[in-house]
Design a protein around this nucleic acid. Structure first.
Lengths: 212, 212
DNA sequence: CTCAAATACCTATGGCGATAGTTATGGACT
DNA sequence: AGTCCATAACTATCGCCATAGGTATTTGAG
């Protein structure tokens, strides 16, 4: 019995939304709306979720005792709910962080299509490969931006998080976050290179059939 | 109006299961069971789907006129349904092949966790990174195997598919398929390299804090 | 020749996710 | 004072996907 394991280890799927929310809430208490916003400028780059999933998940998490919902007045008669992580929430998060991931099977529309490109017009293939390049160039740019703002601690939510730690811990925390984003940037570069190889391939094949 | 577009361009999500099935059925008519098997040794490497999705999707596709279901006797009283692509099915598939993809937002549990690795024990981090390496080494191996069997035309389903084309077309078809799998193999290598960088990072950080 | 195991075929249920809403508040401009 | 519009908070619906079954047929071992 080396590591304490919570009883709720059922964990059907990855359930990553839950842990992404917990991760954000360890920085500071937030309302559902704040979380949705924070998502988009932070974890959202690594795990996207729309509001419509965040609100119900927060309620489920409250039912599970992972967060406390505090009703705050909003306007004259309305209320909004601000969520605070509980100790149980922290411990669930730490458990998840220490448990290995379950890898899910590959499911990649872009490569699926590529495997059947002989069915498409060469021009349509080119267009799709160029779109692939454009998409991952955009991703790459975003990730590099994140990387910069993490490196120099101008990232608002990340800065907030660091405040809760002694500055001796900062390099460690910063290093891991940069590591994650570097991996994503490298992946984007790989995808760009792949699509560009594809563009050359289409040209070659067009050349050959023209030479027939 | 350069490209004929079918009226059913609603296409909520990627709907890739449908097109993966059509792709397989363009090689030969099959039953749901055959398709499930074919899936695992062919498209399955690029788009996984369990039987429980394949059967209902086939029925939906039949309702949409993309495939014809032919009831064949199975045993004494049973029947099984063999599906054949219709012309409408082919044209739907070609349309999809010619249309650009809609890219979905990033959602990656491994990188999500990596961004918060400061919450986990260094040993747990190492274990997870090693699992990441192992997982992608396995994937890489599988993809390289596919690549080989496509290159030398020993892949059973792929060989069947080639039979329907004049041999002058073979290089083109083979090239695209190899291109797709090469991309996946390259991605796997990228992931392996990333996780190994992570392992070095954990060692460095452990060294620093030990030196404190 | 019969029984178990493997193969073939198919279904049910429930969670997660995406799109698209709805209702409420605070300010800005006229 | 009224009406826009942006912000904030939250809900509904529907399709995909995964886990987990369930029933029929063939094979083959004893």
């Amino acid at each position: 019995m080396s590591i304490g394991i919570s009883q709720a280890t059922v964990q059907n799927r990855t359930m990553s939304l839950r842990y992404a929310l917990l991760a954000l809430l360890t920085a500071q208490p937030m309302t559902g709306y704040d979380l949705a916003k924070a998502f988009h400028i932070s974890v959202g780059h690594v795990w996207y979720a729309p509001d419509s999933q965040i609100y119900p998940e927060l309620r489920r998490m409250e039912a599970a005792g992972l967060v406390d919902g505090v009703a705050l007045p909003w306007g004259d008669k309305g209320t909004k709910t601000e969520y605070h992580v509980t100790d149980a929430g922290i411990s669930e998060f730490v458990d998840w962080m220490n448990l290995p991931l379950r890898y899910t099977r590959e499911r990649d529309p872009a490569h699926l299509k590529a495997a059947y490109f002989e069915w498409a017009d060469p021009d349509a293939v080119r267009e799709q490969l160029r779109a692939h390049v454009a998409h991952y160039e955009d991703q790459r740019r975003q990730w590099l931006e994140q990387l910069e703002s993490i490196r120099d601690h101008t990232h608002p939510i990340f800065a907030k998080r660091l405040e809760r730690y002694p500055s001796s811990e900062w390099p460690r925390i910063t290093a891991f976050k940069m590591f994650a984003y570097e991996g994503l940037a490298a992946r984007a570069e790989q995808e760009i290179a792949w699509a560009q190889r594809g563009l050359r391939l289409v040209d070659e094949l067009a050349g050959e059939s023209a030479a027939d």
